[in-house]
Amino acid sequence: MSARKIRVMVAKPGLDGHDRGARILARCFRDAGFEVIYTGCHQTPEQVVAAAIQEDVDLVGLSCLSGAHRVLFPRVVDLLREKNASDITVIGGGIIPEQDFQMLYDAGIKAIFTPGASLDSIVDWIRTNIQGRD
């Protein structure tokens, strides 16, 4: 019997196409031994949530650089809840001013990583917070 493989999804909700960070993270997660679902740019929250559930991921990492995170991130959490999938952890990244952090945490985003966050710190966070889920 082997150990649970961590499965994550990297998603870009909204209209911005700045996917440099998202694509780097997808590769980084692969190199950390995770299975990564990458869905490209311009996703609606509905598409993100449907894919997350079909793929049974442990975690959804949202990336948004357009300023629409205040609306889009909480929407993803809400939709997961509606679909009875609140056990899927949602984290976020992108250009997110610190003053928005609390609002996003309150909405159910578990962690926020902004420019300059090291890849290792993100991988470590996932390993610490995702292990043990079944």
């Binding site: 909204g14 209209l15 609606t44 357009s66 629409a68």
Partner: peptide
């Protein structure tokens, strides 16, 4: 802003939270 850049009007359902932002 992104709706304009992508060819959507401000009231399109694709533009949630994006109007006038960037």
């Amino acid at each position: 802003d992104f709706p304009t850049l992508m060819g959507y009007d401000s009231d399109s359902s694709r533009c949630l939270g994006e109007v006038g932002k960037c």
